[in-house]
Design a protein around this nucleic acid. Structure first.
Lengths: 232, 232
DNA sequence: GCGGCATTGAAACAAATGTTTTATTCTTTT
DNA sequence: AAAAGAATAAAACATTTGTTTCAATGCCGC
């Protein structure tokens, strides 16, 4: 519930973030958003021009909120080892994505993010440059510090994708994960635990990808391991 | 292009899979699907009752295709070590998700899958039980064989999620990954390379999560690593 | 060849929806 | 206090869209 003191504009943004996320841009209707925000339909067009204008504003609102409450570099101090920095970075991702203070995972806002990753709208260009690219750059810095040298983008980029992929998958496939694993405990209560797990898993992965024998292991494999069967 | 010999029903399923995936259930229109399939609008309602019926049929069609061409256990033989089995399993996921013989990643079919993970429709229940759950069970078997003992679901489930999450993230966030990393090379040409990378990364992760000191590392951390900053 | 059934084509319908218009109320400034 | 502009409310409009209807066409067994 949004407190009744919030301004019309804010109430619209909150309601729209939730509904756009749950239903998607096309399926969400101005009327439902207006109803949820306790606002007249025309107020939306008045404040945000049209549906697309509202959507762009919502996207900015949601990302601003997420990265203000949980900044990329939040909680990371200079005295920490690079490994500890990675821990805090990953935990920050989980809190930003899944906590109720952030995008709240499977709720509307969380799915709004996932929808943009899946099918970026024009309004997402801005967000990418302002929030996501710096976030990835920071992760790259941490990774170089952990490895102790710069292994080049051929290694750094997939490493970053593997680490971020684990976090995001938890957030965006939450309903299926819950359904498959049968785990009914609310994910928000396990954020620290999940973050520690992904952290340790990733440290192991980084080590194996960058140790002395890694170059051999990453070579194309001999025919011992055939391609997956294709039945045409 | 669907060859003109394909039956009406097949052409509708192909076109609908693509358009539903690109646009989502609500935004996709029967008229556009009919046009793309070179079919009259009424033919769709005739063959599939209504839009929901068509969607359910498309979902079944797409999953059947993916798991027929690239079965869960495809390419895995008894003589292989568990580690090699994991390699083939991961490569199978990449081919199923990203190759043009499978769901073709960012194309329509690939996004259809991702949309279901994100916001499952009622039609997805079936698919979960028939395709996804056995797939996950098989991965669990491989993991137990690699570890050499059964560490219990507390470890196995997050391990499975971390491994599958990496694969799926590559598929479903492809546009953003490409945009962020600036990598313009077509992903289909690098499937083996990506699979090998994720495989090695995961082997490292599994090792670190299940070695002798792992239990200590997974404990809640001392206040050396503070929570991410919250600015209310 | 013909009757019966399945399939396709074209038009019509009703509901939903983004947007605009016009009137009214609230707020601020002078 | 009056006036002007901002904000909200209610209704109307034009378009889109899922579905239905009904006639036309193709297909198959006798």
């Amino acid at each position: 519930m949004s407190e009744p003191t919030a301004s019309t504009k804010e109430r619209i943004l909150e309601a729209a973030g939730d509904i756009f996320g749950r239903e998607g841009f096309k399926a969400a209707t101005i009327r439902r958003i207006a109803e949820a925000a306790h606002v007249n339909i025309a107020a939306i067009n008045y404040h945000f021009r049209d549906k697309e204008g509202l959507y762009a504003a919502v996207l900015e609102h949601v990302f601003h909120l997420g990265f203000t409450r949980f900044p990329s570099r939040g909680g990371i101090e200079t005295g920490m080892t690079p490994e500890q920095q990675l821990h805090v970075f990953i935990r920050g991702m989980f809190y930003r994505l899944l906590s109720s203070e952030g995008w709240f995972g499977y709720s509307g806002k969380g799915r709004l993010i996932a929808r943009e990753l899946l099918a970026p709208t024009p309004a997402f260009e801005n967000i990418l440059d302002r929030y996501i690219r710096p976030h990835k750059e920071f992760l790259t810095e941490i990774l170089i510090a952990i490895i102790g040298r710069d292994p080049g983008p051929q290694i750094l980029l997939p490493l970053a994708v593997s680490i971020i992929g684990q976090c995001i998958y938890y957030a965006f496939a939450a309903p299926v994960i819950k359904r498959i694993t049968g785990d009914e405990s609310p994910m928000e209560a396990r954020l620290d635990q999940l973050a520690t797990f992904v952290w340790q898993f990733s440290l192991g992965g980084i080590a194996r990808i960058t140790d002395d024998q890694a170059a051999d292991r990453l070579q194309p494999q001999p025919p011992t391991t055939p391609s997956p069967t294709i039945k045409p």
